[in-house]
């Protein structure tokens, strides 16, 4: 897909709109799967596009625009995690980790989740739900996965295999309990 900004020396804020319309949902969904918090997904998705605007000059078209945005989104989340401990101490109550927040998330998932399989993915440890989502839903290649996660291709393959195994185990367990 070609955008009007492509070929320009620099893009304007208006050029960002079609990109957000196309990829906003993908970015938000990915961030929710990573953070399991709507509030964080809202904030980080907006930050992702602000970052994308700022760094679009460095986008070389080596990866698809969607993959590039997902990498930025992922970096935003990891950056947030690293700095969150500071906020947690200096701004008590900053983290939306209350029972009310948890029940709101549960309610959201009950109403919005499209399948039980996604519920399984959301229960996986971060590194497994991340790779499984990027590969199975966002169709990233092994090379793209390796680049996005900062690991080797063989490490990505191993991690993906483990993620599938863990997800299958969890699926079996939940089915057994049902």
């Amino acid at each position: 897909m070609a955008y009007e900004w492509q070929g320009k020396v620099s893009m304007t804020a208006d050029d960002l709109e079609p990109i957000m319309e196309t990829y906003g949902e993908d970015v938000w969904n990915f961030l929710y799967i990573m953070t399991r918090s709507r509030e964080l997904a809202d904030d980080l998705a907006q930050e992702t596009f602000i970052r994308a605007y700022k760094y679009l000059g460095t986008y070389r078209g080596e990866a698809s625009l969607k993959s590039w945005l997902l990498r930025i989104a992922r970096n935003r989340w990891y950056s947030y995690r690293r700095l969150a401990f500071v906020r947690k101490v200096t701004l008590p109550g900053f983290m939306p980790e209350t029972n009310t927040a948890e029940s709101a998330e549960t309610e959201f998932l009950r109403e919005e989740l499209t399948s039980e399989v996604w519920a399984i993915v959301l229960k996986l440890p971060l590194k497994y739900r991340e790779i499984l989502t990027l590969q199975a839903h966002y169709a990233m290649t092994m090379e793209e996965l390796a680049g996005t996660l900062g690991i080797t291709v063989s490490a990505a393959k191993t991690r993906l295999q483990r993620a599938r195994g863990k997800a299958s185990e969890l699926w079996e367990k939940e089915r057994g309990e049902a």
């Binding site: 929710y32 109403e111 919005e112 399989v117 996604w118 499984l132 199975a136 839903h137």
Partner: peptide, 24 residues
């Protein structure tokens, strides 16, 4: 897993026009 996870995870789009305006 590729087949099962191909559909969108959520029914509605949560990246709202209000968020887009804020970004702009």
């Amino acid at each position: 897993w590729e087949k099962e996870l191909k559909p969108k995870p959520f029914r509605k789009n949560s990246f709202t026009p209000q968020m887009m305006r804020k970004v702009e």
